[in-house]
């Protein structure tokens, strides 16, 4: 009886529902007839929506992180380590997480609102009636697009934030671009890039799944659509942090540090 009551709680119910939704994704993704056109559309749309914001934020993060780290390093007489230290944190942590959070905000809410309004205006039912599998057409394409695009955006963010870091170093110091790149790349290894890319794949997948789940199962009425969009952002952001925590542990255990 105790267990039954626990399972009845909305949180566990939600987790169960999202798991079932994810399982359905894996069933449908392998079925024949992929919707390539819609997938390309979605990739383009995600890039278009998030590119500007991701670029600006990445640039500022690189710049600010460098400027703020300098005094501490100078105090320890380690100013020469600035490029290496900053680039490691930008590559490993800041660029992927910032990109994922921006995508959770823009892409997660966008998908949640779009599918939510299609649900309440019966457009999803209309697809079903016309013989097109709406899960395949709407959900599978969007989840795959997010899974592909978030790593790409994150890689871009890494590049831009490193450039921001270079400018930050150069405000006071006189480090040439070549020297900066040399120092940064010296500090970085595959062990930094690979886990960073891999975790953004999971971030993208989580953002896509949560946005689609919230929208696809939206409740009737306009406030239902609004709620889908906001909870998609909240749940996706939370998931990004949880996945990040797991990723750190996994990387640690595998000794990739």
């Amino acid at each position: 009886m105790g267990l039954e009551r626990k399972i009845d709680q909305p949180f566990f119910k939600e987790v169960g529902e999202i798991s079932r939704f994810t399982a359905r994704f894996f069933r449908e993704v392998t079925k024949p007839k992929q919707e390539w056109d819609e997938f390309i559309n979605q990739c383009y749309w995600i890039g278009y929506k998030a590119l500007t914001l991701v670029s600006i934020t990445a640039f500022i993060m690189g710049l600010v992180l460098t400027i703020q780290s300098r005094p501490t390093l100078v105090e320890f007489g380690a100013a020469a380590l600035l490029p290496s230290m900053v680039s490691v944190s930008l590559v490993r942590e800041i660029s992927p997480v910032i990109t994922a959070l921006i995508c959770a905000g823009k892409i997660g809410s966008g998908i949640g609102a779009e599918l939510g309004s299609m649900r309440v205006t019966e457009q999803i039912d209309a697809m079903e009636v016309s013989g097109t599998n709406p899960f395949k057409y709407l959900v599978v394409t969007r989840v795959l697009a997010a899974t592909v695009m978030v790593p790409i955006l994150s890689s871009l963010a890494i590049g831009i934030s490193l450039y921001g870091g270079y400018l930050g170093t150069n405000i006071r110091g006189e480090v040439s671009w070549t020297l900066y790149v040399y120092q940064a790349y010296d500090a970085l290894s595959y062990g930094d890039f690979l886990p960073s890319i891999i975790k953004t794949i999971f971030f993208g997948f989580a953002i896509g799944i949560v946005g689609c789940y919230k929208g696809y199962t939206s409740q009737k009425g306009t406030e239902g659509v609004g709620r889908s969009a906001t909870t998609a952002v909240i749940v996706a952001s939370l998931l990004v942090f949880i996945l990040d925590l797991i990723a750190v542990q996994v990387v640690d255990i595998l000794g990739l540090t």
């Binding site: 039912d125 209309a126 697809m127 097109t132």
Partner: peptide
């Protein structure tokens, strides 16, 4: 449908072509 359920991100032509896809 009572709400018409037109695909609002598509043109009229795309709306009408949609059922043909399948």
């Amino acid at each position: 449908f009572q709400s018409n359920a037109l695909y609002d991100s598509m043109t009229v032509r795309q709306n009408l072509e949609f059922p043909l896809r399948r």
